[in-house]
């Protein structure tokens, strides 16, 4: 779904995953001794892009923000009467629990992605150059076919007569097809499937940058491989881990398609609530308030990320 998070720049060199500059690992250009140019040049370069972002990004976000304190119009839109009702409603257990459980689902997916993504990235980073490229492209490849079609494929795989049940019955693990579709696990599977590469790419970038001599030094000093990993390798890759976690967590939290297609209407996430406020209930102010809650969660997350990368930052092995 979040196509914009989906794909690595095809021409970008390995080590520069999509949006990598968003991560903590890319600092400001270090060598910058020249002046900043004339005011006219500054305006010519920065003006169009910033103007565009102000009109089509900041103004819309400000509108959403301002809607949170108004009443809904009966048929969508907004009535300009002040109210704090939307915020009271946000803390209504009905909606707040959905927000909480969405955070839980997104966290679960992120952890699963980290667990499977870290070793994968680790192996890829150690491959010979040619295989490295192939392995990386293979991680990105699935993104090149439509997101919705890929999600749909999971219905075929997991349904009663589907491949997974066939396989499980075939090897004798079960004797009767399991109900694999339409539950929380299915949603996590779908989310994991959709965003796993967003975890692998920044992890790969972080691991690849490590100086192998560090590990050798640690081993030479008598550390066991496990100890080397936990006390040397892992801390150095924490910034990459954090970037990957943000990349996975963010699109998971706002998702509404996967719960809808793979959840069988039995569970919803905050994305569904927001979508429904705009497209079904036509309650734009409350939809905006829910969106604000999502933004709030993300701001907390980004602060955590900044804090953690500062704690682990400053160590060698990262590009300054």
């Amino acid at each position: 779904m979040t196509a914009k998070h989906d794909i690595a720049p095809p021409g970008a060199p390995p080590g520069a995953p999509p949006g990598a500059p968003a991560g903590p690992s890319t600092g400001r250009p270090s060598r910058r001794s020249r002046g900043l140019g004339t005011a006219a040049a500054r305006l010519a370069f920065l003006g169009p892009g910033l103007g565009y972002l102000i009109v089509l990004l900041l103004v819309p976000l400000a509108l959403v923000l301002s809607y949170t304190v108004f009443r809904r119009g009966r048929f969508g839109g907004v009535v300009y009467e002040w109210t704090l009702e939307n915020f009271t409603r946000l803390f209504d257990p009905l909606y707040f629990d959905v927000v909480l459980s969405s955070v839980k689902t997104a966290t679960l997916t992120t952890l699963a992605a980290l667990l499977i993504g870290y070793p994968t990235a680790y192996v890829i980073a150690g491959l010979p150059r040619k295989w490295k490229t192939i392995a990386l492209i293979a991680v990105v490849m699935p993104f090149w076919t439509n997101f919705l079609i890929r999600v749909y494929a999971w219905i075929i795989l997991l349904s009663g007569p589907g491949l997974v049940n066939e396989a499980l019955t075939g090897i004798g693990l079960i004797d009767k097809p399991l109900q694999l579709l339409y539950n929380q696990g299915t949603i996590v599977t779908g989310l994991l499937y959709s965003y796993l590469p967003l975890m692998i790419l920044p992890l790969y970038a972080a691991i690849e940058r490590l100086d192998p001599q560090l590990r050798e030094a640690s081993a030479n000093l008598g550390a066991r491989p496990a100890r080397t990993f936990w006390s040397v390798t892992f801390p150095l890759t924490v910034p990459g881990v954090l970037t990957g976690c943000v990349f996975v967590f963010v699109p998971c939290l706002g998702n509404f398609v996967i719960p809808e297609i793979l959840g069988g209407g039995r569970s919803i996430m905050v994305g569904n609530l927001i979508r429904d406020q705009f497209l079904k209930a036509r309650d734009w102010p409350f939809g905006s308030t829910l969106a604000l809650a999502v933004i709030a969660v993300l701001v907390v997350l980004l602060f955590l990320q900044a804090w953690a990368s500062r704690v682990y930052g400053g160590t060698e092995g990262r590009r300054a």
Partner: peptide, 15 residues
């Protein structure tokens, strides 16, 4: 790049 697409989408719809 870091904003969830849904948030950007409703922002633009409203705009």
């Amino acid at each position: 790049a870091v904003l969830p697409d849904l948030v950007l989408a409703i922002g633009l719809l409203v705009f």
